[in-house]
């Protein structure tokens, strides 16, 4: 038996599932916005990505704080409570992740303000330099994108750096969550972009990209199950059924209908988003149930 079956559950439940999901969306939207900005030509999706990222990362901070046994001590993650020196352990994903989230939140805020200025919501000449084509804006978005990738992936690494069943029995959870963060974020931008009237070339490019990412996600989830070896047997229950449903409904089906222009619409992106949520719920709860 894997040594992970002798351990206790940290009782991470819906708040953490929600954090993993929304953290992925904030990070993925930011990542996509930057790459669309650097390599694409349509600024509407770029602005949308940055507009989404900041409010969602704020929500993430609230979810994480609410989950603590002592919420008012959330700052102990960043500052040592007795010496007031910075608190960072590079080898603890939760510690480095807290800093990454803070840094990402800062970049997301600056990019958010830049979009507001760019769209003419308010104008303060000094802030115009935050917009991406300017060097300052560029530096912010590139740093923010590195941090976004960190935020999208560290959650899975955090689960692996434990001794819990499933989580610590594979080293592929980080990359799985990372890819899922990007596939769900692309779905979100497709959905919101569609509602916002963005059409044509750029949405189609995003749809094609999302399908490619979904194929990658399918492969990585397959590899994840293989890497679990005998431990994967714990999924011979309702959680396994849900995982299969997620793969079929949240990846395979959107791939099939997405490939046909005639049936394109909101359904595929909504399913991809739901799949991302279910994936995280299955990973968290199927381990939580095992003392």
């Amino acid at each position: 038996m894997s040594s992970t079956f002798f351990t206790a559950s940290p009782h991470w439940r819906w708040l953490i599932v929600a954090y993993f999901f929304f953290g992925g969306l904030a990070a993925g939207s930011y990542f996509l916005a930057t790459l669309l900005d650097l390599f694409g030509k349509d600024r509407r999706l770029v602005r949308l990505g940055y507009l989404v990222a900041f409010p969602v990362v704020c929500l993430c901070g609230l979810l994480l704080t609410a989950d603590l046994g002592r919420p008012l001590r959330f700052w102990h993650m960043l500052v040592q409570s007795e010496t007031f020196r910075p608190m960072l352990k590079t080898y603890s994903p939760m510690s480095s992740g807290a800093w990454a989230l803070l840094g990402f939140g800062g970049c997301a805020f600056l990019s958010f303000v830049a979009v507001l200025v760019e769209s003419g919501w308010f104008d303060w000449p000094a802030l115009r330099r935050l917009s991406a084509p300017s060097p300052v804006g560029r530096v912010v978005t590139v740093i923010g994108t590195f941090l976004a990738l960190y935020v999208a992936g560290y959650t899975g690494v955090l689960l692996a750096v434990s001794n819990r069943p499933i989580w610590a029995d594979t080293t592929l959870l980080g990359v799985t969550f990372l890819i899922s963060a990007v596939s769900t974020s692309a779905a979100l931008l497709i959905l919101l972009g569609g509602w916002g009237g963005v059409t044509g070339d750029s949405i189609h490019a995003l749809e094609r990209f999302d399908r490619a990412v979904l194929v990658l996600e399918l492969l990585v989830i397959g590899a994840l199950i293989v890497s679990l070896g005998r431990v994967a047997m714990v999924w011979l229950n309702g959680w396994g059924v849900l995982l299969v449903a997620m793969v079929l409904g949240g990846i395979a089906f959107p791939l099939v209908i997405g490939a046909r222009p005639s049936v394109r619409g909101s359904l595929a992106p909504v399913l991809v988003l739901a799949g991302g949520l279910v994936l995280r719920a299955v990973i968290i709860f199927s381990s939580d149930g095992l003392r």
């Binding site: 996509l32 790459l35 694409g40 030509k41 990738l149 992936g153 560290y154 990359v175 044509g200 990585v220």
Partner: peptide, 24 residues
Amino acid sequence: SAIWSVFGSVALTLMAMVSFRNRG
């Protein structure tokens, strides 16, 4: 875990570069 995530990041970035190139 970190190494796999870095591979994933590189793959996603390359895929995005190819997909978004001069679109829109």
